[in-house]
């Protein structure tokens, strides 16, 4: 039998997901032995045209990490969709927009202004901004178009499966490979992470749930046993998909929500706020959260109901 063809692509993201693939350790060898990696820009030198040349649906599995930030990202997403039988949104950026998606609080204009003019280390007296087309030595170079809005992969193409996380939990990656290699695929649209929340995996004890004020982690003396919410500290665990084994909590750091919203949820931040508001003693307590979007939508603003800031 022919080995399945695997592609991995890195779009708008930090690259951590690529490292996470390697973090499956020796299992990667099994994978490498079992599949034929046809496209992996970070490791193999492959050109656009090589991909374009492939017949449609000739890639069996494509792991796509990174959000859609510019036209190149979108073009590659569409191309890989065309060439792949199964497209997997890999990592928080591809699934939910992740930290990249927080740029949706601004637009292209304001981001460029900040990056190319206002940052203290920038010297740009002529106010030169990146252009789509630039002439260099009589040749025209083309740069991708920078979008106003960051999108998760599923907003531009049809996605078959999801593996969220920043980066995805190693155990879940390994599990995904196992499922793929054994051809035991779940229904389309599923996640390779469990359908529970981080609380399900968290060893901390939940107590009275009467939240009277919201503190930052440095403001409390963590007893290392009690649920952070019961100690008044924001923890995104309740509204975050499980799979990580609550690894942050196990080292006494509250969950920041990288697993993305739960399976039934359309809006991770709102979902968490509902719960906290419901048990908060004082309605004003949530205004104590220093940075609501950064706190509750750190990984999922681009995949929330409203997706971006409406008016500047």
């Amino acid at each position: 039998m022919q080995k399945p063809k695997l592609a991995l692509y890195w779009s708008a993201s930090c690259g951590g997901c690529e490292i996470a693939v390697l973090d499956v350790n020796e299992k990667i060898l099994d994978v490498a032995a079992a599949v034929d990696i046809v496209f992996w820009p970070v490791a193999l030198d492959t050109k656009y045209k090589n991909i374009q040349a492939m017949p449609d649906k000739s890639i069996d599995f494509c792991f796509f990490n990174g959000a859609i930030r510019n036209s190149e990202n979108e073009k590659m997403a569409k191309l890989l969709r065309q060439k792949s039988k199964i497209l997997i949104a890999f990592g928080s950026c591809a699934c939910d927009g992740c930290v990249v998606g927080l740029a949706n609080l601004w637009n292209k204009e304001s981001i460029f202004k900040r990056v190319y003019i206002e940052t203290p280390s920038t010297i740009n007296p002529a106010s030169i901004f990146p252009q789509n087309k630039v002439k260099v030595n009589d040749k025209e170079l083309e740069l991708p178009v920078f979008y106003d809005t960051v999108k998760p992969l599923s907003h531009v193409v049809d996605v078959d499966y999801f593996i969220s996380g920043c980066p995805p939990p190693v155990a879940c990656i390994a599990n995904a490979f196992e499922i793929i290699l054994n051809n035991k695929l779940p229904p389309k649209g599923s996640s390779f992470l469990p359908n529970k929340s981080v609380c399900d995996e968290c060893p901390r004890e939940k107590k009275d749930r009467k939240i009277s004020n919201i503190k930052r982690i440095y403001e409390i003396e963590d007893d290392k046993i009690t649920c952070f919410w019961d100690q008044g500290v924001v923890c995104m665990g309740p509204a975050t998909r499980a799979g990580c084994g609550a690894q942050c909590l196990k080292v006494n750091v509250p969950c920041t929500g990288c697993g993305g919203p739960g399976p039934q949820s359309s809006d991770q931040g709102a979902a968490m706020l509902n719960a906290v508001a419901s048990v908060a003693a004082d309605p004003k307590v949530l205004s104590q959260a220093a940075d609501p979007v950064g706190t509750f939508y750190k990984y999922s603003l681009a995949n929330s109901i409203l997706r971006r800031k409406i008016k500047e």
């Binding site: 706020l273 509902n274 906290v276 508001a277 800031k309 409406i310 008016k311």
Partner: peptide
């Protein structure tokens, strides 16, 4: 009282969304 608190939270969010 629950929805009052959730509306309060929603308002906080709306501001962030520029609404």
């Amino acid at each position: 009282k629950m929805v009052e608190k959730r509306i309060d939270a929603a308002k906080t969010l709306l501001k962030e969304y520029g609404i």
